[in-house]
Nucleic acid binder design. Sequence first.
DNA 1: CATGAATGAGTTTTCATTCAT
DNA 2: AATGAATGAAAACTCATTCAT
Lengths: 191, 191, 191, 191
Amino acid sequence: MPRALATKAKIESSALKLFAEKGVDQTTTRDIAAGAGISEGAIYRHFEGKDAMVHELFSANYLRLAGEIDELQGRETGLRRKLAAMVGAFCVLFEEDPDMFRFLLLVQHGQLQKMPADARTPVRVLRDVIEDAVQRGEIPAQDPDVANALVFGIVLQPALFKVYGQIDAPMTALSERLTEACWLALSGAAD
Amino acid sequence: MPRALATKAKIESSALKLFAEKGVDQTTTRDIAAGAGISEGAIYRHFEGKDAMVHELFSANYLRLAGEIDELQGRETGLRRKLAAMVGAFCVLFEEDPDMFRFLLLVQHGQLQKMPADARTPVRVLRDVIEDAVQRGEIPAQDPDVANALVFGIVLQPALFKVYGQIDAPMTALSERLTEACWLALSGAAD
Amino acid sequence: MPRALATKAKIESSALKLFAEKGVDQTTTRDIAAGAGISEGAIYRHFEGKDAMVHELFSANYLRLAGEIDELQGRETGLRRKLAAMVGAFCVLFEEDPDMFRFLLLVQHGQLQKMPADARTPVRVLRDVIEDAVQRGEIPAQDPDVANALVFGIVLQPALFKVYGQIDAPMTALSERLTEACWLALSGAAD
Amino acid sequence: MPRALATKAKIESSALKLFAEKGVDQTTTRDIAAGAGISEGAIYRHFEGKDAMVHELFSANYLRLAGEIDELQGRETGLRRKLAAMVGAFCVLFEEDPDMFRFLLLVQHGQLQKMPADARTPVRVLRDVIEDAVQRGEIPAQDPDVANALVFGIVLQPALFKVYGQIDAPMTALSERLTEACWLALSGAAD
DNA sequence: CATGAATGAGTTTTCATTCAT
DNA sequence: AATGAATGAAAACTCATTCAT
């Protein structure tokens, strides 16, 4: 790995960790530099500024997550199995890098609006899957945005509770339970 | 209303609105004072400081919400009807003051840990209802924290989507749909 | 004098002095605050920022100078006497506040372009006087901008030489000599 | 041209242009390197630092200008013809490289004091010419520094006005007009 | 000789909080 | 109680210069 990329990676790692711990605004560029073992000024060779760094970090991870979920979902047929694949992937990824998810959850409020309208986000991926299932008659016709919200809520809120320490079990242990809840929420629509 | 209370109310209202719009850290005491039509210094007659103000605002609204939900739930019998009452109340309250909910969602990350361990929060209220339903045999035995998370996710995520503009319908129109999804998620547990 | 105005005046005085001494870029806000006997932060209650402060200082003094010269010129009749009045005033003002002139000369490069196109600057005042004299037949027809430049050069360059220490005599002692040179430069045009 | 000299020339050219455009302090070494198409570090192979570079650039061009003017003046006899030669040369040189003159005018405030006391500057060249003319009885006895300032002002101010866009005509077109004004200013002295 | 990443001291600016009026 | 000027600590960011490659 070239030196420049190695440094950028160190900065990203330090920043992600601190952002997840203390929040973006409570994390100073000084903290980030200290965590990365470099000088403050060096940050600005790799990022335009703190805001740009947050956005870059959010955007890259958010879209990568969407890509991975999309990839796995594409290998399955039928909504039930697609849900299982996606929820399972989310749970595994969450356990592998909880800081990243904590970061994503924390900054989404400010960052989502900055995403280009046509970006392939997790929200979009799931929406497409749901609309497809409706068209195939797998689940009743229903407002796709509301359906989307239900699935997101069912998956993200347990993750948040874990972050807050209100749930002890690892996310991977909840995978099937969450999948089932998603399936019921979608198939039981009374619309 | 005495003059002092009126001023405090103006400050709270201004702060809540700005916090919901821009986040706590992006809102300055100057902004709050300007929004309330008072001087910056006057804030400190009514609050110990900005942090205390955020906490007071969060705590009061969070506990009031818990109280109202608890009150309504207590009037009903049976999990299904209790859920309907609580979800319905949430939806109505959300439509009445979306800024307050946006504020609660935004700052919960930092505030939840500052709540006294025995505080009667919405999380506790719901947990008690669920545990009660399990004991009565209305729903299968299951991890109450996970069950809690599912219900919270099903209700809060659509509210978040509304805040982000991803859902157009008013929350009150989704009340029954969300109640049904909660019911299915709890009663369909395979634990 | 109200407190706020007194502080602003102290800042202006400190800044002008330092700008004249070391130049704008070599003068820090810390220097200015120290010179004014206030904290650095206090500057920003009175000025939007350093750039705005420089512009405000330039603009106010430059236009005031124009006003004073215009006023004096207006009391005289005939180009010769108008020139004498303006040059004399410039010399007196220069001796009274050399820092201000040094400041004006130093920053004009960057500030002139920021002046509104219709501002009544010293350049405009003099130009009007010259054009009037041409129309009255007091001096030969000539390019008014070039004529303007000649007069400005004849007056400002000695002031600059004084600032650099290349001239010892006070400007007031040169008043008549400069007036005569201006008159000759304008009346001897071979255009 | 050897490679090293070529690089140094590129740096000088880039720097001069940027200094004239934005001023020394607003020009970063990064800008200069980018303009020269080299790396930032390479600058320090050819100059001790930015300050040294500014000084070198000023000094070299200032003295070269003095030399050229001196050379031309030396070929003529009589103040009138000497003035014509020097003013004419200045105008031609200005049109050939206005950036250089803008640079000289801009940085003279800080650089003049750093010149060795015995340096043969344009100011000295002209002063000698004037003193000689006084001794020969071509013009009345007068303070040579003031006389010097008058000539400098008459020549430089139109150049400045051109830089600011207040004069459209090329300097070369003004050559005779300026020469005549200088002559009148010197010969009409009432001292 | 050249590169460009890294440094670190320094800059402007912000802002919660205090306090004289 | 209220005002708003002042504070001072800390923030993000800049940039001339150095140095390993």
